[in-house]
Simulated scan of single mutants.
Amino acid sequence: MNAPTAQTMRAVRMSAPGAPVTLMEIPIPACGPRDVLIRVRAAGICHSDAHYRSGRSPVHPLPLTLGHEIAGDVVAVGADVTGLPVGTRVALHYLVICGTCPDCRAGREQFCRTGLMLGHFTDGGWAEYIVVPAWNAVPLPDAVPYEHGAVMMCSSATSLHALRKGRLQPGESVLVIGAGGLGMSAIQLATGLGASQVIAVDRDAQKLALAAQFGAISVSAADRTVDEVVTAVREASHGRGVDVALELVGSVDTVQVSLKSLAPLGRAVVVGLNHIAVPVDSYRDIIGREAELIGSNDHLRSELEELMVMASTGRLDLRHVVTNTVPLDADAINGVLDALDRHAAPVRTVIVP
């Protein structure tokens, strides 16, 4: 594979909060001595991207190329880069870090003092090319399609990190609230990590049917109150409640369901973005059960390497999760973002430039 001969590329960019993203022609980024230039083959559309476009989660500097779930081919490398020859298939860790601050040295790169997230605070992958530090490029096994590799960089990795934060042990039960892209990965990963039972909650009957195919007990939240959903979860868990609950939606109701569904010593891990205060009955929901409410943010590069092994050996199967592809077209991408805003999108849509 050769480096591009053209000087410009197409990119879908955000220019202002609340405005549609637009297709622009911009320069192909320069490759520094420790960087690699990637020809993007697949870039996911995440619910976070809908939050960015709406302004619910600030993006800067603008205009900015969105997209943080990225896979492609190495087409050029910097002078100081070794071990990533041109032609290597890779997926990209979306946290660009310094590598030298105390958090980076301790393996907590999501808290890097100067860290930048691709597609949020520096240009992302809704483009034909992207430049990243070589450290961010994780080799993608031949058995894993680009589309799956891209989605693994956020939805699968975030789910794995949340399960690790929840300290899931073999034989414990897991509740997954939200059976979208993150949820489908979470169900499979929880099973692969030895969960004795996985319960999935969602309003969408089709997503619950897919969750059931992956072995989850499906509980519908459609037209049900928080207490009614909790009762259904407890019935599914034989009255005890669950050991680990993953909240992947980001609403007041779903956070409450995650807490109220816990067994004694249970851990509720909140992943979904939500800026609204959530009322908590500290005695009944936390103190009385010695339960825990845990935040989970991003993931680690080491977890991406773990995911590659799981995907290449079939323990993580995204064939039924990546349900749609669209071209690098602003109208098509805006349509997916609109559907995500309405909570009416397919499980996962991937851009194929």
Rank of each mutant, 00 (worst) to 15 (best):
R301G: 12
S302W: 06
S302L: 09
E303F: 05
E303D: 10
E303I: 10
E303A: 05
L304V: 15
L304Y: 12
E305R: 08
E306I: 01
E306G: 02
E306M: 07
L307V: 06
L307S: 07
M308P: 12
M310T: 06
A311S: 08
S312G: 03
S312I: 04
T313N: 00
T313P: 02
T313Y: 04
G314R: 05
R315S: 10
R315Y: 11
R315H: 12
D317R: 15
D317G: 11
D317P: 13
L318I: 06
R319K: 15
H320Q: 15
H320E: 15
V321L: 05
V322K: 09
V322S: 08
T323P: 03
N324F: 14
N324G: 13
V326P: 12
P327F: 14
L328V: 14
L328W: 11
A332I: 05
I333F: 04
N334F: 02
N334L: 03
N334W: 00
G335V: 00
V336R: 07
D338W: 00
A339F: 10
A339R: 12
L340I: 01
D341Y: 01
R342I: 09
R342C: 09
R342A: 15
A345C: 06
A345F: 02
P346V: 04
V347R: 03
T349N: 01
V350W: 08
V352A: 07
V352H: 02
